[in-house]
Write a protein that binds this DNA or RNA. Structure first.
Lengths: 201, 201
DNA sequence: TTGAATTATGACTATTAAGTCATTATAATG
DNA sequence: CATTATAATGACTTAATAGTCATAATTCAA
């Protein structure tokens, strides 16, 4: 059992290291096996296919990040302090895993090699995180720290990325055919956030 | 000449449509040829390889977007109005090309299939755009509309994406090994932007 | 100790798709 | 019209790599 777990983790960490070194697109099962010092067939004893392996690499990393953020943020009181800790812990995680995130952010992309099912779970993870941030912002609205006229769920997305993520959120929520009025509204919303932020005063 | 240009554009637009329909990862040169109603070999008369084709699809789209934004923004006076128009025009472009951007944003990624050279030009395009935004913000600083203590170049990146892009900027600028103090500073910077925005008051 | 069960191996197969090139069709020229 | 030049074709070659499976090694249980 522990041996199995060890080899499972070995394959995961080897894949992760390889991704840091050569990126997603150059990752092959042969290279993974070589890096782990085992035969290719062995990799397939622990992972159904390449897609599942990549999915596990990403999801295990996400779970670790999410856990540490929740732990840290749980100790804070007030939405402002929670958000501050969240950003700080998120950044710490990124810089502690900088080589991995460099690949993720700059060279490659995360979901592109995943098939439909893994993409869905990727989207679910993202939703869990934005829901979590959204709850904090919501509590800040209720406590009067933040303006009442913001859509807390949407603002949670915007904390991570402004213009682009605003569009992503619309797409995800089926808002695909925006009237020019809706575009104006979006523009004002983003502009407001960018100019004045979400604080009341 | 015009005939050549027509076929060149035909291949570009067919590729673009295909990407909207099936995404980057499923795009093959056979499908491109089929979509365009020509033979695969013909595609190679107009594009050196698949990488160049993808690069041209992305760059031609970018150039169109950038041109319309510059035209619109050029008519505005004052950094605030310029930024407002920039965001609005950018969003308009995104929604007018919503199927393409849906793929770009949600399903796939842009740079992942490009080889080194094309990635470099992709990064150059991004830099051109952020430089452009940075100039506007800079002028706003000089005119007193925006706070003087912001790094206008960095803030231009943050207009597009906050936390994630903040990290990307650091990576690009060789700031790879951040001390915890620098992380704290980053946190405060992002928090400030998110809480109070860039307006002076 | 032994033989059954589990785990590991890596050469091999199958598939996919990029890119080529000899051949054919079309256009230009004189 | 004949000849040359240009453009187009698509069957074929080549390369990469995901995934398999018969065989071998190791572990475990009685």
């Amino acid at each position: 059992m522990t041996e199995i777990q060890d080899k499972y983790e070995l394959i995961l960490s080897s894949s992760r290291k390889l991704i840091e070194e050569i990126g997603f697109s150059a990752l092959t099962m042969d290279k993974v096996a070589q890096k782990a010092g085992i035969a290719k067939g062995t990799v397939y004893l622990y992972f159904k296919d390449k897609d599942e392996l990549l999915e596990k690499v990403l999801s295990s990393g996400f779970e670790k990040m999410f856990e540490r953020i929740k732990t840290r943020v749980g100790n804070e009181s007030g939405a402002f302090n929670k958000l501050k800790s969240l950003i700080n812990e998120n950044l710490k995680h990124i810089y502690e895993n900088r080589y991995f995130f460099k690949t993720i952010f700059l060279d490659e992309v995360n979901v592109v090699f995943l098939k439909k099912k893994s993409k869905e779970s990727y989207n679910l993870r993202r939703k869990r995180y934005t829901d979590y941030i959204g709850d904090i912002i919501k509590s800040g609205i209720e406590s009067g720290e933040f303006r009442k006229d913001i859509d807390y769920s949407k603002t949670a997305y915007m904390l991570v990325a402004l213009i682009k993520t605003g569009a992503i959120y619309n797409f995800l929520n089926g808002m695909f055919d925006l009237t020019s009025e809706m575009i104006e509204k979006d523009t004002e919303e983003i502009l407001k956030l960018f100019m004045r932020g979400i604080s009341v005063k």
